[in-house]
Every structure is written in C-alpha cells, then in structure tokens.
Simulated scan of single mutants.
Amino acid sequence: MTSDVQSAVEGLLGAYESKTPIEPIADQFADQPLSVAYEVAQAQVQAWEKRGDVVKGHKVGLASRAIQQQMGVAQPDFGHLTASMFHLEHDPIAPDLYIQPRIEPEIAFVLGEPLRGPGVTVADAARAVDFVLPALEIVDSRIRDWKIGIFDTIADNASSGGVVLGSTPVRLSDLDLRLAGCALHVDGELVATGAGGAVLGSPLNALVWLANTVGPLGVTLEPGHVVLPGSMTKAFPIAAGSAIVAEILGLGSVTAVVGKDN
C-alpha cells in the first residue's frame, strides 16, 4: 500500500468515526487507474472486518441514467455491504449514523447459488437468484458536499451507507424486473417514480456486470448475500424524523424510518 493510498484510507475511516466529511481525494491520484480507488475501498472493508464486521453482499452504484446524471459520472461502480449496514424495516435508524444521507429505491437480489465471473451470463445470474425483495438503500458520502467524481465514490465504498429490506420475498420468475414500477414517498409526499428498466435496462444486467467485474478481483458473490443492483430513481436527501416508503409493483412496499434527534 502506497503512502497516498494509506492516507486516503485513514482519511475516509476517520470520516466514518468523526462524522465529519473530508475534501475530495481524486486530486491526490491524478492519472491513477480506478483500480487504485478500489484498493482504497478494499482496505477499508478489511479494517471493518478486523473489528468484527462481516460482508453480507454488494451494491452496484451509478447504474441508472438518473443517478449518473445527478452525480456527473458515466459508468457504474460497486461497493461492499456489511452486516452493520442493515436495518430492520420500521425500526428507527439513528440519525447520527450518517453524514449527508440520501435514499434510493431498489430491487434487492438474494442469491441462492454462488456467482463468479468472468463469463457470467444473464441465464447464469437468473439461475443464481433465490428471490428478490423491495429495498431502500441509504447512500452517504464521506466526501464534503457530495463533490464526488468516479474515483472518489469508488474509494468511498461506492457511497454505501445503509440498507432496509422489505419482507415480501418474490421469485424472479413471478416478476418482470424491467416493468416493475416504483413510487417513492418521503414524509408522505410522492417525490419520484421509476421502473426496473432504468437500471442498465434491467436490474439483472447489473447483477451480471457485478459478477463479471468482481470475479477477476478474486471475489465470489456468495449464496445468501444481498445484491443491490442500483436505484430506479434519483437519490433524495433524508433527515432526522423522515419516513420513506417505496412501493414496487409486484413486490409490495418497504419502509424506512429515521429516528428523531435527541
């Protein structure tokens, strides 16, 4: 690990601890490949694992055109989901867990078989999925004011924050992922609509992309793991006291509640 990578890792881990964002780090890595950003992210995951956290899945970020336009990037990325990131539906989430949180509606895959690229096809991915769930992802940036480019968000574990899963598992064969419409409500107000087809044409394509991207890095998508394929809408800011509901056609609804400040 180079001194620049070590400095970036320490800065991002420090932001998690202090809940104080840092300045963008991309300028420190001018002309460096994105593999270096993933090295920074992986080092943070290893640090969390040493503290007892456990990887429970992965997320694909920046998968929809709406999110790419919002963030000013042109390609997906991926991050790790750990056990500490998962919150129970309707159980108030402590507002001080995050720095500048936003929320996104997604269709979560739960795997029943391992997936490892390269060479994974749509057929392979569909066969590996045990069931799907409605989900809300809380994205958060340790970079000040969300001033992120692709290098910054990759290094920051794809801006991962938290996950709330719904409780209505549905078999993949019982749902058309592309046509699954979504309505997102924040504090009772309809803020966005979308559909599964906004995610790389189909969320299943995002799962294929993920397996074929992490496979050459020595990573297998494990049975029981959750994969978030990407948001169906733009991300929306949330705050203490917020209540968020995503209704997804064919999957039901999922609700996240942010606790009030003490």
Rank of each mutant, 00 (worst) to 15 (best):
Thr168Ser: 14
Ala8Tyr: 08
Asp176Pro: 08
Gln46Asn: 10
Ala47Ser: 13
Ala125Gln: 07
Leu179Ala: 13
Ile25Gly: 02
Ala108Gln: 10
Val45Arg: 11
Gln42Thr: 15
Ala43Tyr: 00
Val132Arg: 08
Tyr98Trp: 13
Asp96Gly: 05
Val254Ala: 07
Ala37Pro: 10
Val227Phe: 00
Pro134Asp: 01
Asp27His: 14
Thr121Val: 07
Ala30Pro: 00
Lys56Ala: 13
Trp209Phe: 07
Asp77Gly: 12
Phe29Ile: 11
Glu222Trp: 05
Gly215Phe: 00
Gly230Asp: 04
Phe151Leu: 02
Ser18Pro: 02
Ala123Tyr: 07
Leu200Lys: 05
Arg142Met: 02
Val45Asp: 00
Val186Glu: 09
Ser231Arg: 01
Leu204Trp: 10
Val5His: 03
Leu217Arg: 15
Val110Arg: 08
Val36Leu: 09
Val186Tyr: 01
Leu190Val: 07
Val9Asn: 04
Ala126Trp: 01
Gln6Leu: 11
Ala192Ile: 09
Pro76His: 01
Gly117Trp: 02
Gly79Gln: 06
Val60Lys: 06
His80Cys: 06
Pro105His: 05
Leu88Glu: 12
Leu12Cys: 11
Val258Met: 15
Val54Tyr: 03
Val257Cys: 10
Asn157Asp: 02
Asp261Asn: 14
Ser3Lys: 15
Glu113His: 11
Ala128Val: 00
Leu115Asn: 09
Val186Met: 13
Asp176Cys: 07
Val164Gly: 00
Ala83Lys: 09
Ser160Asn: 13
Ile148Arg: 04
Ala256Asp: 01
Leu111Ile: 02
Ala183His: 10
Asp124Tyr: 05
Asp140Tyr: 08
